[in-house]
Design a protein around this nucleic acid. Structure first.
Lengths: 200, 200, 200, 200
DNA sequence: AATGAATGAGTATTCATTCAT
DNA sequence: TATGAATGAATACTCATTCAT
């Protein structure tokens, strides 16, 4: 889903490193993109609370000043990163919903989304929860969660009425959080069962 | 539910303040409790991220050293505070469940818990979500959320089978989070409707 | 006196803005002059301490690199700006002194200079004081204040002996500073009275 | 006048320094006062613009955190420092004025104040001008300059009428600034001459 | 000729925690 | 038993200047 690799593009004719620590770098297009990807990595590993300029810069192997050059504010960087993530997840749900017909198939697609897109690896799960919670205090992130919620709702409304769509959305959020906090996570069957009950 | 007032007990024979700013304090039993209550106030207002020794000490009108005297670690203070809060909420649910008979009444009692205990004021809502988040990264708080979840589940199982209880629990968490993030919160009717679907 | 407007010359055939934020600029003769004028605006508003490349570039709606392209050093830009300002003020005094005959008229002209050129608006007053300060630590600016003082002295010597000219000059500086710091500024009458005493 | 010495009190039984850089310190009463004195030293040498937490801490041989412990804000530290200085100077003037009788003697006392207290060494001169100018942008310092001006005025009014006192005050400020900026400073005789003219 | 990107040093301030008194 | 002081690491952010394109 979201990019994770953080390999470093080497300038064409760069010779072997010499002398103290790091050295003349300079040519690095897509550094902005790499910073965003790295920020997501850092958030996944240390949480939003641990995602500081310094930590991200170190993880991206980039000088500290570079982070504030590309994103004038830490919130701006976080918002950019979460936007990338949220859009990838929303894309995935939209595609799943567009691919199926009938509410039974739609429900199964939603189960797939939950178990494979949202809860599959720790990364997506953690990022979702971190976003939920960071949005609480940072206006810049509210826009991201709202857009995500809106897209999710629209996608579900391709197959369900508005009331059901909203309830499904809330339950999905609850299941994500539950999974995150619980010591004994729910199985796909249990998830399917719960979603099924909402839709009748 | 959770204590909110943070008024200051004045020593019986305290004379008018003289000389430099603050002065001899001393007569202050339950300072520990006041610190816990104040910590919850601070978390509710500024989030866990904004709850530092200094901020709490200032809010409690207590010297900085006092916070580390009573709680050797910030995590310890936070855990104490969240425990107080979670137990108050769990108490409330348990009592509601014990007061009723029949699953219809139980469901209505759960609606009451959600709308009056959890979503009533911003404070309880914010504290719940902050706890969810903080628990993610701080082992000391995991125990608190787990105990809370366990007690909730048990209380629901007085009236519902285990599977339903768990689903209700997840939905409740989802609804709390949804309420927190959403621009257009759900009405009690909508909440009742969603819970109803889970139980049939 | 000193230029204040900082409107932006539009290239003849510039089409509506499209795509990402700012775009192709190019047709911009006298960008150097615009930078100087903008620097004075910025100093007047934020002080020398707040006059950085970035702030000036933003205020002039010019790319950051442009400031260092036209002025290889910040001090160079500041010196250019203050020179423009100081020369405008010195010109004004010189003209006033050349226009009159007799020391009574000269004194009245000096009152006019103080109240209308130096203390009239905040801008001139602030720029004078900022220059005084900045000159203290930046050799590049000492030359500017010295030239200004020399010209002032010469202008006054058209009507007063050297000793009196110097004392008037010191008093003028004192009055400017006083006006700047004081909560209850002196009226033109008070200023006239003080100057009068120096000249007999 | 203002303290300048910045020697370091050694804890009674401190043994010779061992190992890497600095080490366990701890007992240091009047560190607050030392910081104020050091701040004045730093301002005198590098100007307000060069007086940062770091520079002051280094000059006082104190850890960085110590400066912000004692003064929660840099402005607070600067205000404390300038207050010490301004009060010392105001004390000096007051004393000179109280010691004399008759306006002739008073004027001579004012000449003494200017030449010996204010313009004697670079330090007092520089501090006065830095204060004048820093006060412009920092509200916290305005109070200091205003109090100083008020005290000066009152002291002069022991011997001169209010109008004359104000004019003398402005001229004194002008002479200080003039001395500061000028390449060829005025002699005591010239200063006496100028002041004399104001008082008749 | 002009500029977007880069970077290393520096800014004020907050912090959890330790410890001497 | 309490607490004011101390401290080293960390925070977000700004900056002058350089340089590749």
């Amino acid at each position: 889903m979201a990019a994770r690799s953080t390999t470093w593009p080497v300038a064409p004719d760069e010779t072997a490193a010499v002398g103290p620590p790091r050295r003349a770098r300079r040519y690095d297009p897509d550094r902005r993109e790499r910073l965003i990807a790295t920020a997501l990595d850092v958030i996944a590993e240390h949480g939003v609370a641990g995602a500081s300029h310094r930590v991200i810069a170190r993880a991206a192997d980039v000088p500290l000043g570079s982070t504030t050059y590309h994103f004038s504010t830490l919130d701006e960087l976080l918002a950019a990163a979460f936007t990338v993530h949220a859009e990838a997840v929303a894309d995935a749900l939209e595609e799943r919903m567009r691919e199926v017909t009938g509410s039974d198939a739609a429900l199964e697609a939603l189960v797939g989304h939950l178990t494979q897109d949202l809860l599959a690896d720790d990364r997506a799960l953690v990022l979702a929860v971190e976003l939920y919670l960071a949005a609480a205090r940072r206006p810049a992130l509210r826009a991201v969660t709202e857009a995500w919620m809106r897209r999710s709702r629209r996608a579900l409304e391709l197959h369900f009425d508005a009331v059901t769509a909203r309830e499904l959305d809330a339950l999905v959020e609850g299941l994500v959080l539950h999974q995150y906090l619980s010591t004994e996570p729910m199985t796909p069957q249990q998830i399917r069962h719960a979603l099924h009950r909402i839709t009748r």
